[in-house]
Design a protein around this nucleic acid. Structure first.
Lengths: 375, 375
DNA sequence: CTGAAAGCGCTTACAG
DNA sequence: CTGAAAGCGCTTACAG
């Protein structure tokens, strides 16, 4: 225990002595109380600086019976969506003087249980989580700590204990599908996800709603290919869909699935955005860098992360918050869906074209999608 | 302060009363001491469970004057390389009963200063960091906490205070370049990074070494296009290199740069892996999913993250550790560099072909790279 | 506006 | 093997 540089820690008592005031006054100054004179404040500040004093938040937490730790419980940080979400949350928390304890659950409920337990021992003030697949209300009952859920709902519906914050999956997918229909597509393959995931159900609902509105029979117009929401899952689902040789448009559950599908299509010799349309969902940073750039739905990941963090902080500080907050989304039309010269805009999800994206779209002037991909 | 469910916290004193033993005995049981009788241990355990006792690590930390927090200071979690590194580190730390406090510096020294200061207030037991660009020895002097640096060296060399753990950049880039030379390439463009980054210097050194060994004059055989180590940086660098119309092989500073370059090349109408060779470095998960799959150097990100975490834990626990640990790397040949039918293997960095990758390579039977890309 | 005192929930010698 | 006691570094009424 005699590690180098183990001189005794400087405490507020040392600072008090150096400044010639009492311990209490030092504490008041540190906490920014208006109850101290300017003179005292000044003396304490210089004393603290000269002694190299470091505030001990752990001691303060113990005394105040609350900490500024927040658990950030994420299924898979390796998924760019969650990485971007975590970064946004971290920044928002840091601004509010909270610090995230990171936990990756690998999307396993089991690990999530252990993680949550550990986090409680560490006395986190709150929990921001994207529940692992299959997490029910019972799993988080009795957490006893303010919490918020992002992106994924519990298997058994809304919970006052875990307010939900997520994008408007249904409207987004509906706008996306309508756009494809307007561009002549009549046969679709929906790729990835499982019906046990709330996001998949909602996106699928938007998909079906758009088909209905266009007078298309979902059973006729679409095949569904379930799979893991990962690149490899997307690849497998696309392979299955391609074998069916029916769809002119592949709509993926999310961007990562679309990336996997994209690679398979390219390998199959298809030119994505011309021979076949492909779309994603989320608009992760990689989507606009895909070859070809991916048409997708921008769920405003950064806003989602920030909002979740801010909602959690509000709850920690005792405010009432909505049981559910749905963030609007925006259709992003890029090359992968072909050029939409005659695209009709759709309600509050009007297509938006960033200037820097336009030039890449002009490479492929309006080609009508074929109803059967050539292999 | 009357938040719901604010019944008084269960402490070891409550457990002691319930079990009919002293506080000390409870503590000993909790800490797994052999100094208690089996009977006592049992009674304490059941009492703790029945009362719903939660160990208060904060109090224990204060008393023991040490915590099990570790700061995970990362330049950019949005970069898949760092996300994968963080995940590996988190898993290793979790196993050893440490928990990471996450901090994203955005690669800004300024933010890094603030983060480091905050982390000290939170009493972290150690710091695992990939220093922000430009971080010098002075920046972390007097941290006073065990620390390790991963992937990036300080601007002014080795430091006993911040042992370095990184891949063998030089050998990796040398093997990669040699492989390209063996396949007939004579003109290269090196894309991305800045010479102020130790990783770029080392990779460039390996690059030049391989050119030298082949009797090629670096000034003649290669152009260097600096830029941010990001997708957009890669895109810009590739654009510059393409305008020079000299190289048959683009070698990127890392995978992310290669992704950006890949997109530009595809847009320019070139078939990567046939018209032009492109390589990356790191082997992030996305590399094998790129279209075409990216030839790169596997730096074993997971090993690096785990090793850094374990080294840090060793230091925290008082062990001596090497000032520098270099992890071996492995060349991964995929489609983006063209089919290497006659590829010579090179020392301990022999090309390795995973079975599942082979089938994709057979799509493009051995085509000789041209010395001038067609536009 | 400041000082003396109690206490947050633990751990750790120290006696017994 | 167990109990009584001190103390980690803070904050917070409470007198003055």
């Amino acid at each position: 225990m005699t590690s180098p540089g183990e001189r005794k820690r400087v405490t507020i008592l040392d600072v008090a002595r150096e400044a010639g005031v009492s311990k209490s006054s030092v504490s008041l100054v540190l906490r920014g109380s208006p109850l101290v004179s300017d003179d005292t404040r000044e003396r304490v500040r210089t004393a603290a600086k000269s002694l190299g004093y470091i505030y001990h938040r752990g001691a303060a937490s113990l005394r105040m019976a609350k900490s500024r730790f927040v658990a950030l419980v994420i299924p898979d940080l390796t998924n760019p969506f969650f990485a971007q979400l975590a970064v946004a949350a971290e920044a928002a928390l840091f601004e509010k003087d909270y610090v995230p304890l990171l936990a990756n659950t690998g999307d396993e409920r089991d690990r999530q249980f252990r993680v949550l337990r550990t986090m409680r021992e560490y006395g986190v003030a709150g929990v921001m989580m994207s529940p692992a697949h299959g997490t029910s209300h019972a799993d988080i009952a009795g957490l006893g700590i303010p919490a918020v859920g992002v992106m994924r709902r519990l298997t058994d519906g809304l919970s006052a204990e875990l307010p939900y914050i997520g994008p408007d999956n249904e409207a987004g997918f509906r706008a996306l599908t309508r756009y494809l229909i307007d561009n002549g597509h009549r046969r679709f393959a929906f790729l990835g996800g499982y019906p046990t995931m709330s996001t998949q159900r909602e996106r699928l609902a938007g998909f079906h709603a758009a088909l209905d509105e266009a007078g298309l029979d979902p059973a006729e117009a679409a095949t569904i290919h379930e799979g893991l929401p990962s690149r490899s899952g997307g690849r497998a689902a696309a392979n299955e869909a391609l074998a069916a040789r029916r769809a002119s448009a592949f709509v993926a559950y999310n961007d990562v699935v679309a990336f996997g599908a994209n690679r398979l299509l390219v390998e199959a010799g298809l030119k994505v955005g011309r021979d076949i349309a492909l779309t994603g969902f989320d608009d992760v940073a990689e989507a606009s860098h895909n070859a070809p750039p991916l048409t997708t739905v921008d769920v405003r990941i950064a806003d989602l992360g920030r909002l979740a963090a801010e909602t959690l902080v509000a709850r920690i500080e005792g405010a009432e918050t909505a049981a559910e907050t749905i963030v609007p989304v925006e259709l992003k039309i890029r090359e992968s869906s072909g050029w939409a010269g005659s695209g009709r805009s759709s309600g509050d999800c009007a297509p938006s074209f960033a200037d820097k994206e336009r030039h890449t779209q002009e490479h492929h002037p309006g080609l009508e999608p074929k109803s059967m991909p050539q292999r």
